[in-house]
Computed example of a mutant assay.
Amino acid sequence: MKKFIVENDFWNLFPKAKIGVVVCKGIDNTIKNEEKFKKMILEAEKKALECLKNPEFSSNEVIRIWRETFRKFKTKKGARSSIESLLKRVYKGNHLNNINPLVDIYNSISLKYLLPCGGEDIDKISGDIILTKAVGDEFFVALGEDKNEPPYEGELIYKDNNGAICRCLNWRESVRTMLTENTKNAVLCMELVDENRGKEFEIALEELSKKVMENLGGACKVSILDINNKEIILD
């Protein structure tokens, strides 16, 4: 029985945060209509640009809040939240590429609602998924890389029995547990650190779940973890 657990190392830093989890079972992630997902991303990019009202990129509220968040724990120099990375690309006029349907869907939701979102293949997870501070020796090979780059001691990471699966909270994901066209069962994760956006957060999670089921079939279950509800069962 696999669990998704957020340990007190995280809650001690961010007691008012929320972690949204969407468990997707029995999906079909093969590419059937690339143009459909491309259109979905383009519409989300347009929405994101409308929300970046300050011409100085770093002064936009979502960027400022996540940079402040990353200053509260040990990070690799230059590490930024996943939502900042997406927004910076769009802000510079560079469109996101299609990756696979599930990733395209969560990227579009991430941009539309200005919330970081990532995902892992449940069947590639060993044991529980745990959000905690790193010891510093966890095995980690990032997407697009081929060598082990363990997190720093004290860095917030998602990990399982075989090492880290995402470094610096939501900065970079592991190639070991990445979502592919062969993924049948997945866990999608969305983080909220701005307590004023709780309702938007819930709407984003529900839309994410709905879009997955509409486009990829299967069944999805949405859960929200907080300081009073620190774990869920994935199976």
Rank of each mutant, 00 (worst) to 15 (best):
V21G: 06
N228M: 02
D194N: 11
I233D: 11
E7C: 01
S223F: 15
I157M: 07
T69S: 14
T132C: 15
I125N: 10
V103T: 14
S126P: 00
P151E: 01
K32P: 01
S108C: 02
K133G: 01
R176D: 06
I129E: 05
E120Q: 14
E191L: 03
E200N: 12
V21H: 03
E84P: 00
I19C: 08
S85L: 02
A79V: 11
V222D: 11
E56T: 08
S81I: 01
L205N: 11
D128V: 05
D121E: 14
N29K: 03
L188K: 07
I109T: 14
V22K: 05
F14T: 00
D226L: 07
P55G: 12
F14Q: 00
N162K: 14
L111D: 02
L131Q: 00
E7R: 11
E56V: 14
L111C: 03
E191F: 08
I130E: 08
Y113C: 04
S209A: 15
P101L: 13
D160Q: 08
L192N: 04
V193Q: 07
F57E: 02
A44G: 01
G93C: 14
L225Y: 12
D9I: 08
Y106F: 15
E61P: 00
S126K: 13
R172M: 15
L205H: 09
E34Q: 15
Y106A: 08
L234R: 07
P15V: 07
V62P: 06
P151Y: 06
K211V: 06
I122Q: 04
E84N: 02
G144S: 13
I63M: 03
K184W: 00
N12K: 15
D137F: 08
N94T: 10
I99T: 09
I129Y: 06
R64N: 03
T30R: 14
S174P: 03
R89K: 06
V222L: 14
K159N: 05
M1L: 10
F37N: 12
C117N: 13
D9F: 04
W171I: 00
I109N: 10
K230R: 15
K230V: 11
L156I: 12
F73N: 12
I19W: 08
F4A: 10
D226Y: 12
L87N: 02
L131W: 01
T183A: 05
S81G: 07
L143N: 12
M40R: 09
A79R: 13
E195V: 10
K39M: 12
C24A: 15
K88W: 09
N100L: 09
K2W: 02
N54Q: 10
I233A: 11
Y113I: 00
R172T: 05
Y106R: 13
N29T: 07
K2G: 00
R167Q: 06
E149F: 09
L131S: 01
L115W: 01
I130Y: 02
A134V: 05
V175L: 13
G136F: 13
V6K: 03
K36T: 09
N162M: 12
E43N: 14
F14Y: 01
V22N: 02
V62C: 04
E68G: 08
D194I: 02
E145W: 02
I122W: 03
N60P: 10
I105E: 10
P15L: 04
